[in-house]
Design a protein around this nucleic acid. Structure first.
Lengths: 341, 341
DNA sequence: GTGAAAGCGCTAACAT
DNA sequence: ATGTTAGCGCTTTCAC
């Protein structure tokens, strides 16, 4: 049997309320008694039951982090940032993986409704569209913050990156390196970040004088093998594609495989830039130019915001935090390319 | 105010116990009343408070996963397996990161003692030696299972890989590829897996006729930059090292950097094999031969074991599960090397 | 300054 | 088949 506040009270011939107050360092308990209680509690290795008190004050000190994957550099780094802040604040983090499935995500959020956690940090899965009943529902019940991937239709705080701008810059980067036939590998699903990146690409391409930029969008699949085929077809096309913007890491890997398999030299024949947080992007063959998102900082920011909401019952629904991504130039976009008229 | 069992009872003019039993589908409640209660509960979107009942039956449906890092392919894949099993069993997983620090790990385990979770799955950090008071302590309080990295001194279940054998095979692999001067990059810290891998290496080297195998151990650091220097010194030595066994992924990356920086051709001048679960090992320059651990399966196995313990109060302390690693041969060890006498 | 008592939401003996 | 009651461990009025 674990040691409870009542046992301490009995052993010390005090009331439970006295012990409770002493342990919470209440001013209405004499220093003398406090000492006695604290010493005895320490001696018995008293550990408060975390969920007993939670019954009364409706607070669990647990938060939920809902992400599509954990075997992904962006998400794992974000989780890192979240866990760090959470631990510092005395919170515990529960992790939920949606595997990009709408059903899984909905069932998870449903499970979060009973009061298991005090708040949630979520990056929605591809399967979830811009709107979702359960997301909107949950927002009314406890603080929920989107990070990186958000549902547009849901009114709550979000921590994002400048997807439009960085995609614009990434495309410009390829243009400045001499690419004339650039394609954009679009991820499946209807996420706002996907759209932002697509729009940034289209704008940049349009600004560079391309007639019908939307013809340069290549829709990929959620399935890696299918994406491989789609990318192969796009790159082996007579159009002679010489630049690729990969909207997500997974597609970059497939693009590399295609180039490797069909010996399309990077960066001479084709230049590649990708949204990716792979630390070892520099060791790829050739090293890959990436748009890297501030994953850790985003996790930190989201968690910090959540705890602010939790602490002060502050209304954060209007909050918008946008952190900049950075282009990390490497060999896959090196060289100026062939200069054509 | 959220809807409670009592509200349902009052609205329906029933006793709370009746409602409670009906919701748990007890046989002592008439089908008629069950229907009424269930329908009404559904209508009001009743969700049981997860921690209220937990007060009585001392069960939270939460488990803890304690790992050094999450931005690591092995751990994130293991977590994947754990989460999958947990969710299927209706459990929730809390994640804790030790960042390889003994202090962090101890403070985390301390936090787990109050009954926040029903059990724990842990891969100990490098900072923790073979023994630890708090680990032993916790084992007496709730089911705890080690996976991958265990404290030898602590009597409880563990899910491991065949580190000795796979290290032996990895070394043999280099020998069979013609390497004559092989070194082993040892990770810092005193973990049993580190030791097993070292021993496997020493045995293989000894069996191949090398005189003083222990001279071939290169002790690396926890700090990447320091490891880089140590590895550089080892590889640039006059001994003309032509084979490297990397005991952990991080060191493999540093080894690659060294070879890249000092233009030591892989695999012609030096062959490299590494314990690593990097999916993109195949895209490195050159692609890397790896010893890949069954991360996902280990997570699954550990979680399954834990739930078995939780369900049947089964004693699992003697349990030992060993899953085999696999060598995935790629370009970094290709070629037979120079044949010498 | 200390204690008694009620109650958080739910379960489970023990009535009826 | 349904209701009464006590209690899980703790907090929090409200008395003394």
């Amino acid at each position: 049997m674990s040691v409870t506040i009542r046992k301490i009270a009995e052993d010390l011939n005090l009331a439970v309320s006295t012990v409770s107050k002493a342990l919470r360092d209440s001013h209405e308990i004499s220093d003398e008694t406090k000492r006695r209680i604290l010493d005895y509690a320490r001696k018995l290795e008293y550990i408060p039951n975390p969920y007993a008190g939670s019954l009364k004050n409706k607070t669990t000190k647990n938060i939920a982090v809902v992400v599509p994957e954990v075997a992904d550099t962006f998400f794992s780094n974000a989780i890192n940032g979240i866990e760090l802040v959470a631990r510092a604040k005395g919170y515990h983090v529960m992790i939920y993986l949606t595997h990009e499935s709408r059903e899984r995500e909905e069932s998870i959020l449903q499970d979060l409704r009973g009061g298991r956690v005090d708040g949630v940090l979520i990056s929605v899965s591809q399967g979830v569209g811009g709107n979702s009943l359960i997301h909107s529902q949950l927002v009314t019940e406890l603080p929920l913050i989107f990070f990186d991937r958000a549902c547009d239709g849901v009114e709550t705080a979000r921590v994002l990156t400048d997807d439009f701008e960085s995609s614009y810059k990434a495309t410009q980067h390829l243009v400045s390196r001499g690419c004339r036939e650039i394609v954009f590998l679009a991820a499946a699903g209807e996420l706002s970040i996907t759209r932002q990146r697509r729009e940034g690409f289209l704008k940049a391409l349009g600004d560079s004088g391309v007639e019908k930029p939307e013809k340069h969008i290549v829709m990929c699949s959620e399935d890696d093998d299918k994406s491989f085929t789609v990318i192969k077809n796009a790159l082996m096309d007579k159009q002679a594609v010489d630049g690729v913007v990969c909207s997500v890491e997974k597609l970059a890997i497939q693009a590399y495989r295609v180039c490797q398999t069909y010996t399309l030299a990077i960066p001479d024949r084709i230049k590649i830039i990708a949204f990716s947080n792979l630390q070892i992007a520099g060791l790829l063959a050739p090293s890959m130019t990436t748009v890297v998102q501030p994953a850790f900082a985003m996790g930190e920011a989201a968690a910090t915001l959540l705890f602010k909401a939790l602490a002060k019952k502050l209304d954060i629904t209007k909050e918008r935090i946008v952190l900049p991504s950075e282009i990390c130039e490497r060999d896959s976009t090196r060289g100026t390319g062939i200069f054509r008229m």
